[in-house]
Amino acid sequence: MSLSEQQVKEIAYLARLSIDDGEVEQTTAELNNILGLMADLAKIDTQGVSPMAHPLNMSQRLREDEVSETDQSEAFQKIAPQTGQSHFLVPTVIE
């Protein structure tokens, strides 16, 4: 499997990364070079092997339903790029 330039543009957008037309060719080559490493995977026999999403065979710990957090919005908004009236601000989103 190898990526086309069009696919690379789509993936970049999916990941919200901009990619100049001038960069597409090189990026595509680099990504295909990396994907070349993965070619062997398809040849490995994994019939009947379950996927391992996590190194430890454990189950999720459950938290008691208690409010443990206090209002720290001031500290959190101090580090935000733009705020107003206790909100985080972004350019207008049209729905």
Binding site: I11, A15, L31, I34, L35, L41, A42, T46, A53
Partner: peptide, 23 residues
């Protein structure tokens, strides 16, 4: 990021992400 977004995307998940988790 792009390799990851690709390997998780529709149509490629099984061949990449799932396969890798099995290996």
């Amino acid at each position: 990021i792009m390799i990851g977004a690709y390997a998780l995307s529709a149509g490629y998940y099984d061949a990449y992400y799932l396969k890798a988790q099995k290996v």
